[in-house]
């Protein structure tokens, strides 16, 4: 433990309303802590800059999975274990249950939450490419207002989001529109478990008459934030899966990604493997 715990303040209000009041007060800024799988690591390493924490881990208001015939809504406190166990997610949103299974260890999955994963905003986060592919909507709450926004616009840069200091991510809503789609998810990490991704892709596509009618590709570790590969999608739209199409898609992917060299891998490797994963998906789509 490289931090001095006496330098930190942790408050645990009983209700969501009380949490929002604290976030809106001038006592802060407070950082919400749910499962703590990110913040506790930072605390242990002596690099947790924020000194005031408000616990939301116990709030049952944030831990729910609600389904209607048209939508699935996940409370931000839904753990990865919750995601893996849910039958609707397994059938309708298999990219998300797969991504949940990639995350950390079983212990991490029991504590870590989807909402925490989103607001932590790591470019390497496992579940976020799937949420981008499913075109999730986020509901943000504060003491004064509630707003619903497309997830695609949530990330502004490296670990920067549109979330205001007084706001809390309440829930994530997905449309149950993807039964007809082929699903593809693959994470290339430093090892098969308890690994941070070098590259991850989560993608959906629907073919009609041998042409790609719709395709959505989410990716991790290819830019400073989780991204949709929109240029690549445009190149593939209404195309048959031919060698030329694949080459064009690979080129488009390369043009819209900016992978980096870091302690885990190289930019060259990430770019090549990302294109290989895309190609693997396209081959699987072939009728």
């Amino acid at each position: 433990m490289r931090s001095n715990p006496s330098h930190y303040e942790l408050t645990t209000p009983a209700t969501l309303e009380a949490v929002l009041d604290i976030l809106a007060s001038d006592l802060g800024p407070y950082t919400p802590i749910a499962g703590g799988t990110e913040l506790m690591v930072a605390l242990g390493a002596g690099r947790l800059a924020t000194r005031k924490l408000v616990s939301i881990n116990h709030l049952q208001e944030l831990r729910f999975i609600a389904t209607t015939p048209e939508t699935l809504t996940l409370g931000s406190g839904t753990t990865f274990t919750d995601l893996r166990k849910d039958p609707v997610i397994a059938t309708d949103f298999s990219l998300l249950s797969q991504a949940a299974s990639w995350t950390g260890s079983i212990a991490n999955q029991n504590r870590g939450t989807l909402g925490g994963n989103i607001v932590n905003a790591s470019p390497a986060a496992d579940s976020l490419p799937a949420l981008l592919a499913y075109e999730a909507e986020l509901t943000l709450v504060s003491a004064r207002a509630t707003r619903t926004i497309p997830y695609a616009g949530f990330h502004l840069g490296y670990k920067k989001t549109i979330l205001r200091p007084d706001e809390l991510l309440h829930s994530i809503t997905l449309k149950r529109d993807f039964r007809e789609y082929a699903h593809y998810a693959r994470k290339v990490g430093t090892r098969n478990a308890q690994a941070i991704s070098k590259v991850a892709i989560a993608a959906l596509a629907r073919l009609k008459d041998g042409l790609i009618q719709d395709i959505r590709i989410g990716a991790a570790s290819l830019r400073d934030r989780p991204i949709r590969l929109t240029a690549t999608e445009r190149v593939l739209q209404n195309q048959p899966i031919t060698r030329e199409t694949i080459a064009a898609a690979r080129a488009a992917l390369t043009s819209e990604t900016q992978p980096i060299d870091d302690i885990r891998s190289t930019a060259k490797y990430r770019a090549a493997v990302a294109a290989n994963l895309l190609e693997e998906f396209l081959h699987q789509l072939k009728p």
């Binding site: 390493a45 430093t190 090892r191 098969n192 478990a193 308890q194 690994a195 941070i196 302690i263 885990r264």
Partner: peptide, 12 residues
Amino acid sequence: QMTNYIMPTSAD
């Protein structure tokens, strides 16, 4: 740190 010094797990 064990996050980035990659020791194989039972899954590997």
